[in-house]
Design a protein around this nucleic acid. Structure first.
Length: 302
DNA sequence: AAAGCGGGGTC
DNA sequence: GACCCAGCTTT
């Protein structure tokens, strides 16, 4: 017997699923992995066009492994969290070296790849290989917190009990399990949304514990605090990266002033980027008024 | 368990 | 202006 949520959600998905390129039959397992990495904290609408161009340019792990890292970072453009692009190229190289260029099907082997965590490994098992796994992303957490937990939103960080609850709902056979995983995620993305859920369009509104309880407010609200954006180190890092992506020559330190007015903050940002491998610093020896001086220039790696 | 890490759209 | 988005890695 499947869990009561499963049949109506599968039926809803058959009617309502978006036509996304990484869900098409011809998409390779590597294409699925690339989509999953790009979708880590980045919405579908921003990923889709970039994914198409990316897969056109680097269709296989071998292609990406051989690319210049500077090209990879430029192609990543403003998708955000550029370290993901670095990890993705490292992942491609690991697939070439460890797995003869073919993405493994084993979840533990996937988890061992750079940039692949619990969610992404499970997602590739289900969406690329059609096998049973426990896929728990922010959408699944929210749907299960509401329908089964009776709460507005899940706790701030993923708990063991959430994983256990999710595992209980996943159907036993591979094909149905894979279908369930994509379907419940889609339900969270399109209907059971964080801000204003469309319960009128929900296939399991009659089974929803949160709805039955009168849709009480979020109990964890006081513990959710996000880092602000304006004026942060992250913003300055982003601007430095934007400057270097746009430059076709190494950029002198003085030109990075555009990234922000606070010198200490700029230094922090650039130092961090160099430590992360996203930026390379070079010392250039020149002559000013007959004196030898050393100045720093910055560029993208590779 | 918590903090750091982009960037853009939406309410 | 706050919140949210198919999370991962490091401490």
């Amino acid at each position: 017997m499947p869990h009561p949520l499963v049949p109506p959600v599968l039926d809803w998905y058959a009617r309502s699923a978006r036509d996304l390129p990484w869900r098409r039959p011809g998409c390779t397992p590597w294409g699925v992995l690339v989509s999953e990495v790009m979708l880590q904290q980045t919405p579908v609408v921003r990923v889709e066009p970039l994914w198409r161009a990316w897969m056109q340019r680097w269709p296989t792990p071998a292609h990406l492994a051989d690319a210049a890292t500077s090209d990879v970072l430029r192609a990543w453009d403003r998708l955000g969290y550029p370290r993901r692009a670095l990890r993705l190229q490292e992942c491609a190289r690991a697939v070439v070296e460890r797995h003869d260029g073919e993405l493994p099907t084993d979840e533990a082997a996937l988890l061992a790849l750079p940039g692949v965590g619990t969610y992404t490994a499970a997602a590739v098992v289900a969406f690329a290989h059609g096998r049973r796994s426990v896929v728990v992303d922010t959408n699944v957490r929210r749907v299960l917190a509401r329908t089964l937990g009776g709460e507005a939103l899940p706790p701030p960080s993923l708990t063991r009990s959430e994983m256990a609850r999710a595992a209980q709902v996943v159907p036993d056979d591979d094909a149905t399990a894979a279908r369930w995983s994509v379907a419940v995620m889609e339900l969270g993305a399109l209907v059971c949304t964080a801000r204003s859920p469309r319960c009128a369009a929900c296939p399991v509104d009659d089974l929803c514990a949160w709805r039955a309880a009168g849709m009480p407010a979020d109990e964890h609200a006081h513990r959710r605090r996000r880092q602000a954006w304006a004026g942060t180190d992250r913003q300055v890092r982003g601007r430095v990266m934007a400057t270097l992506r746009a430059a076709d020559h190494p950029v002198p330190e003085a030109l990075l002033v555009d990234a922000g007015p606070d010198e200490a903050q700029r230094t922090r940002a650039v130092t961090g980027l160099v430590a992360d491998g996203l930026v390379v610093r070079e010392d250039v020896v020149g002559t000013v008024d007959g004196e030898r001086v050393t100045t720093a220039v910055y560029r993208l790696p590779g």
